[in-house]
Write a protein that binds this DNA or RNA. Sequence first.
DNA 1: TTGTTAATTCGCACGACTTGCAAATTAGTT
DNA 2: AACTAATTTGCAAGTCGTGCGAATTAACAA
Lengths: 147, 147
Amino acid sequence: MKSPDQLVLAFREAGLKVTPQRQLLFRLLHDNTAHPTAETLYEVAVREMPGISLRTVYQTLTDLAAMGELQQIDLGGGAARFDPNVDDHHHVVCDSCGDVRDVYVANADEISVAGLAGFSVQSARIVFSGKCPTCVATPAAPPVRKK
Amino acid sequence: MKSPDQLVLAFREAGLKVTPQRQLLFRLLHDNTAHPTAETLYEVAVREMPGISLRTVYQTLTDLAAMGELQQIDLGGGAARFDPNVDDHHHVVCDSCGDVRDVYVANADEISVAGLAGFSVQSARIVFSGKCPTCVATPAAPPVRKK
DNA sequence: TTGTTAATTCGCACGACTTGCAAATTAGTT
DNA sequence: AACTAATTTGCAAGTCGTGCGAATTAACAA
């Protein structure tokens, strides 16, 4: 994702307005490696800007994703997560606490696949599951997911 | 997934009852490669058994998944899909029509991954996206997803 | 065959997540 | 300062799935 300043320019060039709400979200997302949900991001945002609405957070996240500045990650079940890292990468999810981290796969294109005959493949997403270092050390860590 | 007859035995052994509804679903799922959603399966089931409820379909799918006879696939956004193929395999999704197919990856364990330090990884899911053969041939095929 | 009991079915309500809508507000420009 | 289109916001609504409770039924025993 571009820096907040660059995003301001990018939004104006796209004919979009730069509001205080958006600028706040630009800041909160910049270098954010927490893979927040819309709700999570909202909770942080509302502390700095008490009036901001969850609807606006959704809206801005959608806009950023549409501009390719943000990757939306659907891990099934719960809420979508948003990743300002738009490099080619993948993810690990902790089954216990729901934590998500970026993972880099060097030779993803070297895997040999059967069953893709006739398919025009555009992308491949890899999601690893397991226990994060913290939850490995703490056996009974309660899941974060609401469901 | 086991055959319908074997599932009957497995359910009884687990202390679960074998109802006509369940037997119907056993049959509909056997050798089913369509990766149906609960809703889709319900629509087929209700034709053979007009009174069956969507609730029961969800219940039975959950039971089968808990017994390891069915794999639940969350591809984000829409409804979960169910796969009676419980072999170690992965999936391709058609962006146009939503079709899902099984894919076998031979050397999935040979990929070199960075960022998993300290993580205890249990599994890896790979989802390919693209256009299925039909949608490659028919450019403007409408998406199936309701969203 | 009849009785017993725990499991199941089913419909409805509800919960989580997300989007549609419309009125009021505001950013960016003239 | 005025204008206009974009934005914000709250609420309603939609989708997917689950909790709950009353009525039903499978499984088993006498």
